[in-house]
Simulated assay, not measured.
Amino acid sequence: MCTAEAYMQLVKKFEIKSRDKIIDFLNSQPVGRVASIDKNGYPQVIPMNFVWSEGAVYMHSHPMGEKLENMLRDPKVGFEVDQHVCFLPSYYFHPTDASQADTLYISVVIKGRAVLVSDGNEKARALNALMEKYQKEGRYEPLAAEMPVVHEVAIIKIIPDEMRGKYKIGQHWSRPYRLKMAQNIIEREGLENAKPILAIMGIETKNGAPEAASELEM
């Protein structure tokens, strides 16, 4: 049986310790989910395009809608981003026990305050940051505060009060065990599908077999 102390040590091992790596992860992901509280007290969760810039999360929105009403009524919000890395079937760990199935993932959760940006220059900077993230090839005119389109959209800014990241990508396994799991993933997913999963796990392949497992620390 896992003791409380051992459990807490394992939980700490799953934490992303580097703020820079949390931010890098946020801006590598295409969709985040913002949670606000509606007028009846229920959480409303909405998927949104977003960018981390200047110490906050920025999103653009239609200037009217329930989520904006929620945020004006109660600015406390949650924001979550996650990446599903790989499902691990139960038979990787036990021949018949279905409860042993597991998942590799990375996630970041933010608790903070939402504000609607009114300053035209800040709105333009946020919109340009969003464009730089999602349209990396360019081929657009940068937005400026005086452009009408900047004033036609709402910009939501989430100022973090608390930001925490978690990752479970096999870093809690010994190197030999990680390589064993990597071989299972190759056999189940096929080599080409497995390669991006193994890359996240810090594992390289040679001649179709897992070869090296780097130390993982985020």
Rank of each mutant, 00 (worst) to 15 (best):
D38T: 14
I22S: 04
W52A: 04
S90T: 01
L216F: 06
M131E: 09
E215K: 14
K67S: 03
H94S: 13
R19Y: 00
N49C: 13
P148L: 02
S18V: 08
M59K: 03
S36G: 09
M1G: 15
L72V: 00
I23E: 07
M218G: 13
D97R: 07
K180Q: 05
V115Q: 00
E152K: 08
F87Q: 05
V85H: 14
A4P: 15
V153H: 06
M131G: 10
A56K: 08
K168D: 11
E211T: 09
E137Q: 07
K12N: 14
S53A: 06
G41L: 01
P30K: 13
I186C: 02
E69R: 11
F79W: 05
V77K: 13
G202S: 09
A35Y: 02
E141R: 14
V34R: 06
A4C: 07
Y177Q: 10
K206G: 11
M218W: 15
M147G: 01
G202Q: 08
K123V: 00
S36I: 01
R73I: 00
D119L: 00
E80R: 10
R175M: 09
M181V: 13
S36F: 01
R125Y: 04
L88S: 09
P160S: 08
S118L: 03
G190Q: 15
G41R: 00
G165Y: 02
F14L: 15
P196D: 14
L143S: 01
I159Q: 14
S99Y: 08
G112L: 07
M64L: 06
L191M: 05
I37E: 05
L26A: 08
V34N: 07
M218E: 15
D161E: 15
M48P: 00
E141G: 04
G202N: 09
L116V: 06
G170A: 08
V85Y: 12
H172N: 14
L216R: 12
G170Q: 09
Q171G: 15
K166T: 13
F50A: 00
R33D: 04
W173F: 11
K157S: 04
A199G: 11
Y58D: 04
C2F: 03
P176Q: 12
K123M: 07
M163R: 08
Y105F: 10
S53V: 00
Y92Q: 09
V81N: 01
G41D: 01
K168T: 05
A101M: 07
N27D: 09
M131P: 03
I159F: 07
G112Y: 13
N27L: 06
N193A: 12
K136N: 01
A199S: 15
L198Y: 12
H151W: 10
G165V: 03
R113H: 08
K133Y: 01
G55H: 12
I16C: 03
E192T: 10
G202R: 07
K195W: 06
